[in-house]
């Protein structure tokens, strides 16, 4: 009997992979001052999965992921349309679109008969990390046993594939991404398709958000898009090191957050675990707080030293 392998390793791995998948594009979003795109995407995921459920009538992973990805694309297009047609600043345009889409999602959910299936707002927010267990993992030997491996929670290979895909994309498009993030005008004069790069980045972020929300919920998605990259930004001036730091911070948040959520209350004399998703977000916030207080590159270049 190995409770760790059955109950704790899968959620820790899934949480870590989700955190890394979100933190990688998050680095570029933070630098481009588009950090809140992640917030907007994770809100519109709800109408996406609700519509997918109504169309297909089943709670299946792929239709829902497609629905969520479709909703994310619709949201990005709508934000751009509102911004251009109404000549409205991007923050306000984003606020108008994602709140309206989220409200529509809640309304449709209340109106339709979804009470019989497990689809609700709380699930989309908190995710379901603790329930991703691997009953066949009865010992370390199971890691080599194909029959036992086939019983792994399907979220694990899916999240691993998405994280690998995003890491690969980041590596492949490293130069254009870096150049267009820091100096879009220069990148354009070199003939780089800066608009396509920008849109591709948002789509990648949407893929990460959609894959992660299913396993871990929206809270982690927003926190991991912003907190690890922001903390990493305060540690170094080099993008390569910043990305490495952000991956380290994301991993630390996921592992420490899960451990604190599962065992922290026991240490404090409580009996029940608390929300792992919430705790992972909290730990990432604590890391960012420390970086804000003590990060070597925390202040602006040329800023007047205060106090």
């Amino acid at each position: 009997m190995d409770g760790f392998l059955q109950l704790d390793l899968p959620p820790i791995l899934i949480g870590t992979l989700a955190a890394i998948a979100c933190a990688l594009p998050g680095n570029f979003l933070v630098l481009r001052r588009q950090a809140l795109i992640g917030d907007a995407i994770s809100h519109v995921v709800l109408p996406g999965i609700v519509v997918a459920f109504l169309v297909t009538g089943v709670v299946a992973t792929w239709p829902m992921m497609l629905g969520a990805a479709g909703a994310a694309v619709v949201a990005v297009v709508l934000i751009e349309a509102v911004r251009r047609l109404g000549r409205i600043e991007p923050g306000a345009a984003m606020g108008v679109v994602f709140t309206a889409m989220f409200a529509a999602g809640v309304l449709v959910l209340e109106q339709s008969d979804t009470s019989s299936v497990h689809i609700d707002v709380e699930h989309a927010l908190y995710g379901n990390l603790e329930s991703l267990i691997w009953l066949s993992g009865e010992g370390w030997g199971s890691l080599l046993d194909p029959a036992a491996l086939a019983d792994l929670p399907p979220e694990l290979p899916r999240m691993a594939a998405v994280a690998a895909l995003i890491a690969l994309l980041t590596a492949l498009f490293w130069r254009p991404l870096k150049l267009s993030t820091f100096d879009e005008g220069f990148a354009a004069t070199l003939g780089m398709p800066v608009r396509a790069i920008s849109f591709g980045l948002v789509v990648t972020a949407a893929v990460a958000a959609v894959a992660a929300f299913d396993a871990v919920g929206s809270i982690i998605v927003i926190a991991m898009f912003i907190c690890p990259p922001a903390a990493a930004r305060l540690m170094t001036n080099r993008l390569e090191r910043q990305v490495a730091w952000s991956v380290a911070f994301a991993t630390l948040s996921a592992v420490l957050g899960y451990v604190l959520a599962g065992w922290g209350p026991l240490w404090l004399g409580g009996e029940n675990a608390v929300s792992a998703a919430g705790m992972i977000a909290t730990v990432s916030g604590a890391i960012l707080g420390l970086a804000c207080l003590a990060g070597p590159h925390r202040s602006r270049v040329g800023a007047v030293r205060e106090g």
């Binding site: 001052r33 809140l36 927003i222 926190a223 907190c227 922001a230 608390v274 977000a281 925390r298 602006r300």
Partner: peptide, 26 residues
């Protein structure tokens, strides 16, 4: 006080406070 832009600050506070709130709810 830091070189992070305001939108990153908004997103960080929003998600961390919300996450901590969920912990308290559980």
């Amino acid at each position: 006080r830091t070189r992070l832009p305001e939108d990153a600050a908004i997103g960080a506070v929003l998600s961390v406070f919300f996450g901590f709130g969920i912990v308290l709810l559980t």
